[in-house]
Amino acid sequence: MPELQYSAPESVTRLEQRAFVVGAVALGLATFGALRSPETFYASYLMSFLLVLGLALGSLGLVMLQHLTSGHWGIIIRRPLESATRTLPLLVVLFLPIALSGMKYLYRAWLDPEELHKEPLSKFQQGYLTHNGYLLRALIYFAVWLALMFIFNSLSKQQDSNREDRALRRRLKMLAGPGIILYVFAMSFAAIDWVMSLSPHWASTIYGFLFVAGQLVSSMSFMISTVVLLARTEPFSSVLQARHLHDLGKLLLAFVMLWAYFDFSQLLIIWSGNLPEEITFYRTRLYGEWGVVAVIVLVFHFFVPFFLLLSQDLKRNRRVLPRIAMWLILMRLVDLFWMTRPEFTSRAVPTWLDLLLPIALGGLWLGFFAFNLKQCPLLPLGDPELAEAIEHHEH
């Protein structure tokens, strides 16, 4: 089939333009908040940055998982996944406000000498949690993610040009395993540096895995929404089938369960240990106003999606499944709100910046994603299993 048949429809260009406009206007309005209350601004900015970072890095993890397993589920969404990974340069730019001016507001607990004097850290923490160390490690994390992005995107493009090169496919599979390990390690340490260090006197060994699982939930949710929107028009409308949605829905259910398993494991271990230095995280978040948010996360991030996604009919439904997916992205934002904001305030009511900054950063990210999506055919035309993956049959 000719490549032009799988070029992005005009709706993607409209999405790009509107997303950039909405994101730019929202970010412009949010700058007033930065001038009035920089601490509140950067707390909201960090939460919003983690949301869009998760969409890109979760997609990177899914790209490598698909190459490793050779599953047909990933062939349908590979090009949207690759487009999402290519937003990482934008995320480097979006990280700069945190690195250049936001650190002194976010990480006072270990950057401010007065705070350190009130609650001293261990010698290891004092050597690890430093301004220069934070920036150097951030540089390493982004270097790892950008290298993985470049490798898998370039090899995928080569596959389109050299469709009979079986060695290229083996190379993709061989690199995927170590790539997943690098992604998980880098994200785990980034979660420690960027989020867990907000409360440096508390620690959890499973904390990074919570973020990895959450990123897989949000990126798979975004991919489901994307392919259903693309299937409203040609050329994708003749490609997407109910069995594809069923496979993606099953994976989404698996990732929701994985996230819940990690979250509950952390709670169970810390709560049963009942050590004063460990329970501070949950003592803040499970009582009062934050306890209400915890219940919302438990019910609407796990129980409701879990029981809905158990239904085979709902997983194959083009109208219902994307709504569940978009809801999970919203719940991911609520979960990040619950994980980060109690370090700054006892009030669990979102500020106007908590509502505006996700729109700002999300709009810019979505616009850049749409721009990337137009650069390649919507399907990996060089994949030897493409014909079988899009063949019309049901199971």
Rank of each mutant, 00 (worst) to 15 (best):
M1S: 10
P9A: 06
T13C: 11
L27A: 14
L27D: 00
G28Q: 03
A30K: 09
R36A: 15
S37V: 08
P38G: 07
F41W: 09
F49V: 00
M64P: 01
T69W: 03
I77S: 06
R79N: 11
L88H: 02
P89S: 10
Y107E: 04
R108K: 15
D112I: 03
D112Y: 11
P120N: 06
F124C: 10
T130M: 11
H131A: 09
N132V: 12
Y134F: 15
Y134T: 06
W145C: 08
F150K: 15
Q158F: 11
Q158N: 14
Q158L: 15
S161R: 14
S161D: 04
E164M: 10
G179F: 05
I180F: 04
W194N: 01
W202T: 02
L210H: 09
F211V: 12
F211P: 08
Q215S: 08
L216N: 04
S218L: 15
E234T: 00
Q241H: 01
G249C: 09
G249Y: 12
L251V: 04
M257N: 04
M257W: 06
A260M: 15
L267Y: 10
L275S: 04
E278P: 05
E278W: 03
I279C: 09
R285F: 10
L286K: 09
W290E: 07
V293G: 07
A294R: 05
L298C: 05
V299L: 13
V299P: 06
F307G: 01
L310W: 04
R323M: 05
R323W: 11
M331R: 08
M339R: 11
R341W: 12
T345Y: 07
S346N: 11
W352M: 03
I359D: 03
L361V: 07
W365N: 02
F371I: 10
F371A: 13
N372H: 13
L373V: 00
Q375S: 02
L378E: 07
L378G: 05
L378F: 09
D383P: 09
L386K: 12
I390W: 03
